[in-house]
Structure formats: structure tokens, C-alpha cells
Amino acid sequence: MPSPSRVLKLIALLLDYPSPDVRAESLALHALIRTAELPEARRDGLAALLDALCQGDLLDVQERYDSLFERGRALSLLLFEHVHGESRDRGQAMVDLLERYSAAGLAIDANELPDYLPLYLEFLALGDAEAARQGLVEVAHILALLAQRLAQRESLYAQAFEALLALAGVAPELAGQCYQAQQEAVDDSLEALDRAWEETPVSFTDPAAGCPSASPRRQPAGVEQPLQWVAQPVPQTHPRATR
């Protein structure tokens, strides 16, 4: 049975910008999915997502990825996008997160942003199973919100977020109960893009919201302080990480 770290790396690969590597390694990735310590429904969901990434012209798959994750804030894979919008706190939060990555031995290519979800998953994969779980719990509300919004669009990418919540041990309905996804119609027009960037960001830390975390916020092993999730526009490059 594969370790949680291998499953996190698998999901990071599935959520990254589609590349020929996924297709080349599809058989091995399917084998990893089938032996992952996840509920059967979550394994089936990841397998379906992998199949979709391996079917048809790669350029079409990449275009679908762009249309989901790079057109507005609502589905951004930059975790800091979903809390404080254009907060001034982003700069220091980025520095703090980069320092944690460096301490864990994770080197980031130039021009990469540390809050990119696949990169964060690779960071969690460097720790032990409990530290990784706590790192997922730390962002469970964001994962649940994205799962809901992707499900509304009938996107198989929702399966990756459901799997992450399963690894965190957090029920999707519990994690997202205070932060229901907006029931917006799917609209990819330029006007809709402008509106998306004007959306008020969701706050997961404001006590006035009256909704506590679905699970106590505990500090992951090896991390000096809890992560601070703030915001930044989606980049046009796709981060890669090396150890």
C-alpha cells in the first residue's frame, strides 16, 4: 500500500498543468491509485480524472485546465487567493512559507509562487503522515469550497479535492458547511472574468463569521507557525518544485 506522501505527490501531479508525463506514466499512476489508502469512491474518482487527462488531444486538455483554473479567482489553485484578496499581508506570508519550504529541503524554481496547491502538496509529502494530515486540515475549508465549485461545473477535478479531504479525515459537507460555493452560472465571457476578479474573497479566519473550523487548527510537525493564507493574482506560469 503506497504511503500518504506518494498519494499526495500523485494528486499534486493530477492538479498541475497537464503534461505528457502523466500520459507516459498512466499505468503506474493507475496502479498507485488502486492501492491508495482511500475510500473506494475516492479511488474511482481519481482514476476517472486520470483517464480524462489521458484522453483526446493534449492541447484540448490543457485548454480545459486553463478555462477552469486561470480565469478568475473562484477556482484559483493559489491558496492565498481565497482569504484576503489583495491583502498587504501577502508578501510576508510568502516569505514565511518559502522559509518553511527551504527548511524542509524543497527548492522552488525562479518565478514560482509558494501557495500554488500542487507545490504545497509536495511540501506536505516531505513530512510524516500526521504532519501531512494536519497540513491538509489547515486548508480544509478552501479545499471543500473548491470541490463544491468544481462539482457545480461537473468537473472531474472535484475528485482530487474530495480525495484530499479524505486524506485529511474531514467530511466535505462538514468542511464546507459555513462556506457554501456560490450557485453562479458557468460564464466564461470577458465580462464574467472581470466580475470574478471583483468577487469578495472568502474569509476562513474571521471570528465574526461565527463559524469555527471543522477541526482544531493544530500546528504541523516541523512548522514553526500556522500557515497564513492571504492572496495574489493567478500567475501565467505553472510552478515546478525540486528537492
Rank of each mutant, 00 (worst) to 15 (best):
H84N: 12
L75P: 04
D96C: 00
R6W: 11
L165S: 05
L13D: 02
L68W: 11
R153E: 14
P233M: 04
P172S: 08
R100E: 15
R218W: 00
H30T: 10
E162N: 12
A214Y: 01
L10H: 03
S87I: 07
G91H: 10
A41K: 10
L124T: 11
V186F: 13
F161D: 03
A24G: 12
Q228R: 13
Y101C: 12
A144L: 04
R90F: 08
R88C: 01
W229V: 15
G91T: 10
R34C: 05
G127N: 10
S189P: 09
D115C: 03
R133L: 07
A140F: 08
F80D: 05
R240L: 14
L167S: 06
A93M: 09
R195E: 06
V234K: 03
P114S: 11
R23A: 07
A24H: 07
S87N: 05
A192T: 06
E191D: 15
S26D: 08
Y17L: 01
Y179F: 07
E130G: 06
E198Q: 15
F123V: 00
E25R: 14
E173K: 08
L190A: 14
L29S: 02
F80R: 12
G72P: 01
V234G: 10
P212L: 05
R64H: 14
Y116E: 01
C178N: 14
A241G: 14
L119K: 09
R243Q: 11
R90N: 09
E173M: 05
A160D: 06
F204Q: 02
Y179L: 07
A93S: 15
H84T: 11
L227N: 07
R64W: 09
E138M: 10
A208W: 06
V202K: 06
L167F: 02
L150P: 03
P2N: 11
G210C: 06
A181F: 11
A175V: 01
A104E: 03
P39L: 09
